[in-house]
Simulated assay, not measured.
Amino acid sequence: MALGDAYEGEDPALPCGRTLSEVWETAEETPDDPHTVGCPHCQEALAQLGILDDYVREARDRDADEAAEAAAADRLTARVMDLVRTDLRPGRTLPLGEPADDAWITEAAAAKAFRAAAEALPTVFAGSCKVVLEVPDGPATVTMEVAAGLEWPLPELAERIRERVLAAADEAVGMTVSGVDVTVVDLIDAEADAGEERA
């Protein structure tokens, strides 16, 4: 698969020194490359890029108008690449529990948990997710962008995502979140999962 468009602009380097584009190209050209096989950073990046490959192939396989299909594939590519770049950067550390607990989590890890909570809803795909402290050691606010299937009424979608993110913050992450701001950036024509939420 050609990923040239995905690397226009930023092509972040992994802790091992290789960039995302180098990792992908090496995996395609030399699958048994010793560095790639033995490097946990390259293996994690390949796992993330595999998701991108699956999404793009799925988009291209759909029966749709050629131009619309290409546009959908480009949106999916950009969205997943944003997630890959975010997951490769730990970002700031955020406090958990009470100040005396001296417990912390990286912003990237918290955002990943919140995106997973939102994507447990059928035909919901989470993109950018930012976690911001209102005051030092205080509650946080979460800002998230999502794409969703056409079957969702927007007010209901936003409310369901808020409920899931707040529950994940309390039960899975252990962080106090005072508000969740949800922005729907794209509506997609995707088949609903029979009205059931994904595990």
Rank of each mutant, 00 (worst) to 15 (best):
A64I: 03
A103F: 02
D102M: 00
E44P: 04
A103K: 13
T86H: 15
F114L: 12
C42T: 08
H35S: 08
A68Q: 09
A167F: 00
P136M: 00
A47F: 10
R79V: 02
L88F: 09
A68P: 00
D102S: 02
I105W: 00
C129N: 07
Q43A: 14
D32Q: 11
C39F: 10
A27N: 09
D137I: 02
Y55S: 00
V131C: 04
R92Y: 02
L46F: 04
V165F: 04
A45R: 13
V142R: 12
I161V: 15
E145I: 03
E145L: 07
P34G: 06
D32E: 15
P90K: 13
V84R: 14
A148K: 11
C129Y: 10
A68G: 02
V135Q: 12
T93D: 07
P90N: 11
A140R: 09
P139T: 06
A116S: 13
V132A: 06
R89D: 15
P122C: 05
L83M: 10
E163M: 04
A147S: 15
L76G: 00
D32G: 02
A71M: 07
A126H: 03
V56D: 08
R164M: 03
A64T: 03
V135K: 12
F114N: 09
R162C: 03
A100T: 07
A73C: 06
E98S: 10
E28C: 12
T77H: 08
A118S: 10
D63R: 13
F114K: 12
V131A: 00
F125M: 09
V135E: 11
F114W: 13
A47Y: 08
A70H: 09
L154P: 02
V37M: 10
V124E: 04
D63M: 04
L76Q: 14
V142C: 00
V132I: 14
A73E: 08
D101M: 00
R75F: 11
L96F: 01
F114S: 12
R79L: 15
A140K: 09
A70N: 02
V132E: 10
I161F: 06
T141Q: 10
V142A: 04
P136R: 10
R89V: 14
L46K: 13
V37P: 00
R89G: 06
D74M: 07
E119V: 01
L76T: 03
A72H: 11
D54P: 01
D82I: 02
A78P: 07
A103W: 06
A73W: 08
Y55N: 15
G138T: 04
P90C: 06
V124N: 05
A167M: 00
R57P: 04
I161Q: 04
C129W: 10
H35P: 01
D61L: 14
G138S: 03
A64W: 05
E145N: 14
E29R: 15
L154C: 00
D33I: 07
R160D: 04
G38L: 08
E44M: 12
S128F: 07
E134M: 11
E69H: 05
D87H: 14
F125I: 12
A158R: 15
T77R: 15
G50Q: 09
V135I: 09
A109W: 08
E163C: 02
E159N: 01
E134I: 12
P139C: 04
I51N: 05
A167V: 00
P90Y: 08
A45E: 07
G50Y: 08
D32A: 14
A100H: 09
A67D: 09
D82L: 09
A45M: 12
